[in-house]
Design a protein around this nucleic acid. Sequence first.
DNA 1: TAAGTTTGTTTAATGAATTTACAAACTATT
DNA 2: AATAGTTTGTAAATTCATTAAACAAACTTA
Lengths: 391, 391
Amino acid sequence: MKQTGDLNLVKKINKSIVLHHIRTDSPISRARIAEITGLTKATVSSLVNELIESSLVDEIGVGESSGGRKPMMLLFNGTAGYAIGVDLGVHDILAVLTDLTGKVVREKRVNHDNPSAQEVIDLLKATIRDLINGAPESVYGIIGIGIGVPGICDEDGTLLFAPNLEWENVPLQKYMEETFHIPVVIDNEANAGAVGEKQFGAGRETANLVYVSIGIGIGAGIIIKGELYRGATGFSGEIGHISIQHDGPKCRCGSLGCWELYASEHALLERARQEFGSSITLEMLLRKAEAGDAAIIALFERLGYFLGVGVVNIINSYNPEFVILGGRLAGAEKWLMKPLLQLLEKRSLPHPRKLLNVAFSELSDRSTVLGAASFAVTKFFASTTVSVEHN
Amino acid sequence: MKQTGDLNLVKKINKSIVLHHIRTDSPISRARIAEITGLTKATVSSLVNELIESSLVDEIGVGESSGGRKPMMLLFNGTAGYAIGVDLGVHDILAVLTDLTGKVVREKRVNHDNPSAQEVIDLLKATIRDLINGAPESVYGIIGIGIGVPGICDEDGTLLFAPNLEWENVPLQKYMEETFHIPVVIDNEANAGAVGEKQFGAGRETANLVYVSIGIGIGAGIIIKGELYRGATGFSGEIGHISIQHDGPKCRCGSLGCWELYASEHALLERARQEFGSSITLEMLLRKAEAGDAAIIALFERLGYFLGVGVVNIINSYNPEFVILGGRLAGAEKWLMKPLLQLLEKRSLPHPRKLLNVAFSELSDRSTVLGAASFAVTKFFASTTVSVEHN
DNA sequence: TAAGTTTGTTTAATGAATTTACAAACTATT
DNA sequence: AATAGTTTGTAAATTCATTAAACAAACTTA
């Protein structure tokens, strides 16, 4: 059912707008917020005072006058609460405690060699418990947990299918909420990564971006008009399984010639092992390329070409302003970027390309974990200031 | 700038909700609307009376009692105004006059053999003028014009690039508004087609669908949560230029192995002409296939296969509930569908496919023209009942 | 015929924003 | 210094759409 309008809705909308400006443009005065938003000074004043009341905003003293009374500057109080962000990887768990601005306060990384789901979940709980116990005192305490997972989830936070973990139908959100009794958000690691890059990384200035997560497979998180696009049922972005060769080799998904068979880290290593022995790792390849090994450099350049093929497909179908490539391959940027850009220049449609930018992640392996924490913070604010999404 | 909330916004939201229910669930009583929406009877009554005042709603007499006073039934007044919808094709113009419910009142189809842009625009104007002159008297008159074009447009209604018309940078919206002095909406024919199918065709029950327009090229219109998705800058959906063979033949777009080189009507005819002579047409192919010509049927089956390859890519990247195939190839459905479905069954990911449906258009060649008219109607209601989109 | 139900309107109350006014604090000018 | 003008933030009165409560009219059922 559609959400109807009433006075409550009006207040929530305006309060969230005011808070948004304090979060992004602070330090800022009441008068300036009124000017920017079009709300009257009286309205802004009233809403700001409620936000101060609820500890989300602080007055930090007077600012510079522009020819009249000095303004009282407002600051978002990032330490009114803390969030947990988790990147549940195939071989390790990266977890962070952030404040409400997304600043990392503590961080834990633990390995697991992919034992049973139960053992990984227990490890996950212990890791989170540890971060919670070490969190500073605050008004709202731990406001929520966000978890990025390497697979497909539904709206209830059940991990439906994670091929590389070999998990199926794990109700992760339920488990976590039963354990910690705070709101939990579960989403795909590429979606979380896209949000991480949008909020804290290379995509801060961009409303439309695609984050391509390159690892064992290839996934993508798509941000449209500043918001994550999830597709019809919440599991879109399986872009690694776009076929770039309709009669190519068979993929485990059933299709033929999927992009991730050519352009993933896994594909690179497979090929390198065929040519140079089975014990080779990405770190070794990077070292050899750095030392000038032409055969290895050629291998990276070939990968750059195939990355480009898929990126052209992304550009032509999603038309983003920014494509951000994430994952450990960022370390090979210097060999990948040239063939990739050459291919884009040659092959993408002129109109979509005009505004386009391609870059590797700025956050290295933190995009997902920061995005996951950001999910928790967003959910917190949605419940306190605006809650339009009820359906 | 974000839209702030005030009483005006509340009223617009609620009025549009009430009108929406009268448009879709009529005949319906005030009491029933209050029940469905959660608004009070008093609020609904007040809003309905304003809608009656503005001629958009009529009382059509009392309905059946369910044990008390008989309800006064309300009906949307579809003839309070009329809209023009146009499908500007490469070889012809199809234009319709519809009422506010989308019902076609008059229709005109004229051929043009792609002369200069100016001549086509003059023909377009004459065609529209003719429909306007023949429109019935109504309260609001002609409320707007929607035009679907075979190319890429910007937000100002300029046709940036239409390869098959050989047009570039034609400010069509400006021309039309200067001529007719009513609101004009310009959009890609595939986008219009998607909206047409969503409103009036196979996609009525579906919130997430992709309409694939197969003609000289292949385009797509994407509907997410009931709304058209336009990508970052308004020219997304160039899905025909997704490469399905990274080292395939060169496309006019610059890339290699684009889907439309394999699966468009144009590609089919090219191949047929190579094999069976240069004078062959789609109609001839259909007739021969109908007569049992195995070579021709094989040609269609091959096309079905390649349609499937692209549809799998669409499913994996957009994850829609429904893929609707439009264009003249609908006539070959019986030979295309089997290889297409076989391919889907084999190649698409299990989760996205679960809810998926694939079908040919129900509206034959009217999807675009009806969608275009619907654009005009939507714009009209946006300006009279809700106008949130100002930025 | 009486009792209960449903519809739709009327009236009063609520509350969030706006408008207007204003005091406080500051800068610039004479 | 004194004065004028500007800017900030609050206060009081007004506006207006919704809600809640009451009610009259119209209808069904026992």
